[in-house]
Design a protein around this nucleic acid. Structure first.
Lengths: 141, 141
DNA sequence: CTTGAAAGATTCAAACTAGAAATATTGAGG
DNA sequence: CCTCAATATTTCTAGTTTGAATCTTTCAAG
């Protein structure tokens, strides 16, 4: 049986590692993004825009507040990378859609992000394990 | 052999999960921190102050810039939770030390953080796996 | 039809963070 | 002794992120 102190230490280290890796990913994104004239947040938004979606959904995917998503989308819209369309069924909502320029830039971004990814140190099998563990940790609301 | 598209998707999902969990931890810390009159960053600093260390070392542990660590320490110092002492051997550096109040508050914080941790959904064995995977992903660079 | 609670999006102010420049110190060489 | 690059920290500014308030629309209940 582990001493309570050991459990606390393990908890702290794990938090540090998760935070550290997230930061490392964020830096990786930032570095690639600047090559394309984007900020890290803008690139993350572009990465998560896998298809038409609402502002809330994008915010959820970006793990940020909707107000911040609005701010980021404003910037992308000014660069003509994203369009705000009226939502087909809900007039409260806006549907975010990539423009052709946005779509091609997104492809370039994904190609860049794939290179030297912080996750590349793990094998496909290990990435799967990580995926499962994270998903399980995360579904516990 | 997986299609290149599948690899890109897996990469994106994994990034999202890591980010999401980091955000979840951050929110967890924030919620417990406010109970003690601290911000999330201040609580993280307190959590990582396992002993006397320099500003740079704390920044490294917090995964932030030294300038930000300075800002956070300023706040903790005003609350008499941390002291800046001259470093015993390097006069350029400062040694950060918890005051008695800081130490007791840190203990309370760790106890709070242990409750309902986002990582609690994983067994001890799974947490070990996660620890190993994250460490391997992080040691590159 | 009307009311009221709730959800989607936006605005605004306040707080936080990173990045670059500035200060002080160290250590290696000349 | 002196110089110069490198390190540790801090200051300052600009940009990002959050949280609260607001506006519009939806939906359910009366």
């Amino acid at each position: 049986m582990a001493a309570p102190q050991a459990r606390v230490t393990a908890e702290r280290e794990l938090c540090g590692l998760v935070n550290g890796l997230a930061h490392q990913i964020s830096e990786h994104v930032r570095e690639r993004a600047t090559r394309l004239g984007l900020t890290a947040a803008q690139a993350t938004a572009l990465r998560e825009l896998t298809g038409p979606m609402t502002t809330s959904e994008l915010a959820e995917r970006m793990s940020c507040e909707p107000s911040n998503a609005t701010f980021v989308i404003d910037k992308l819209e000014k660069q003509q990378l994203v369009e705000r369309r009226p939502h087909p069924t809900d007039r409260r909502a806006r549907q975010l859609v990539l423009t052709p320029e946005g779509s091609t830039l997104r492809d370039k971004l994904l190609a860049l992000l794939e290179q030297d990814s912080p996750l590349a140190g793990l094998s496909a099998r290990e990435q799967d394990s990580l995926h499962n563990l994270l998903q399980r940790a995360r579904t516990r609301r």
